[in-house]
Design a protein around this nucleic acid. Structure first.
Lengths: 229, 229
DNA sequence: CTAATCCATGTGGTCGGACCACATCAAGTA
DNA sequence: TACTTGATGTGGTCCGACCACATGGATTAG
């Protein structure tokens, strides 16, 4: 077993033993190296992996944001992984979109009308009505869909949705350029958003699921989603 | 921007430009360091991340399996990420199980009866009838469910399912110890497997989805899935 | 006494060099 | 011909050094 894997195992054990909590700090790299009797290099490689996994964040300097602190951002890891594999052309974009439809349909069908995330979603829709630019509109769109997903109360599904979105973010931005009339599309999207949110708020999960599936698939179809290879 | 991120970006660009294909090799660490005018340390940190993401595999020595070669194992990355976050108690096991039910139900409802993966699944069921030990039974069970998922033809869903399974693998193994009568449970699971595969083979996706959901939820309920915190 | 300045301290980030273990392959040898 | 041996190239590990940065206390100017 390689040395950095040993370090990784030690740190993971600290996690499962509850000795490292969210917001807590790992020992300093030099201290950890001495404690585990390994080189600082190996400690750093382990920390690099944890950082890529969205489990810790490394900060220089001293004080508040310094040191290596424990965070909880699973979407970071999933997003980076999907993005990399998409870059290698081994994850068909069509599969990613299909998975997004699957997860999001489920999420809205399970969303609880009393969830505070829905109130946030409503605010986002108002902002989208205020006539933002294309880029801003898309950013709000992402947040709206994530808020919808959050209302289902399953953090795994939320993280996966966020990561799918991140993985095809650049791709989606490219697609908007294929649209014949952005203003018309934006108007349609806004209306569909209202309908989806309304269905969720009235507790009609089935209708919300159908609407959101049509919403996503319709968008990619209009923008010219290429056939899978 | 940190140096290893620069290296990461360069390599990712090679991917998206199609200059690095599956089975291909990255330049040697020392060569890459010189080419990008960075230290070998930074190159190694970037490679460590790619390795954790399931994008490359590093091998020592020379010849066939040596060097850093490009692979495509997205499930590795997703699984490791979920496992780590589960260890930090920030991913409720209940959410993971729920997501597994969601993905697997969808997969079997979409499975194509003519898929070769189903034939493989049938073989696995025969092996499970041959009376393997508990550990072996569980290993076959994993492969059976993955084969079912593969029949849906969506690699993203397959990868996510595999990773969910990996994340709670140790946990599931613990659960079996809670079972009052393993032989009885194993017999029931085998019967349920047959019913699921039969539903898929006859093209009854709806029934297959209901069966698989009940199959998974029933197992965790029997084994005493703790309430989410 | 107050306020600004300066510096000691500790953190991660980067670098270059060295050595090791390993696997292969070619040259040399029995 | 068959075996041995060494050269070569790969990743794995370690060490020591220096840098940039942020803080906090000591020092100094007002």
């Amino acid at each position: 077993m390689r040395t950095h894997e040993l370090v990784l195992g030690w740190i993971e054990k600290q996690f499962s033993d509850g000795k490292l909590l969210l917001g807590g700090r790992l020992p300093a790299e030099r201290a950890l190296a001495e404690q585990l009797q390994v080189s600082r290099t190996s400690v750093r490689e382990a920390i690099r992996i944890l950082e890529a996994m969205g489990v810790v964040r490394a900060g220089v300097g001293s004080g508040k944001d310094a040191g290596t602190v424990v965070i909880a951002e699973p979407a970071t890891a999933l997003g980076a992984a999907l993005r990399l594999h998409a870059a290698t052309r081994h994850l068909p974009v069509a599969d990613i979109v299909e998975t997004r439809v699957l997860l999001e349909s489920w999420a809205v069908s399970r969303a609880r009308p009393e969830s505070p995330a829905l109130a946030e979603a409503a605010v986002l829709l108002d902002e989208m009505d205020a006539g933002p630019g294309t880029e801003e509109f898309l950013a709000l769109d992402v947040r709206f869909h994530l808020a919808l997903a959050a209302a289902a109360g399953n953090v795994v599904v939320s993280a996966m949705m966020a990561s799918l979105r991140e993985a095809i973010e650049g791709y989606a931005a490219e697609l908007t350029k294929n649209l014949p009339d952005w203003d018309a599309t934006a108007g349609r999207l806004r209306a569909e958003h209202r309908a989806i949110l309304d269905a969720v708020n009235t507790g009609d999960g089935g209708r919300a699921a159908r609407l959101v599936a049509a919403h996503i698939e319709g968008y990619y179809r209009e923008a010219g989603l290429p056939a899978s290879e």
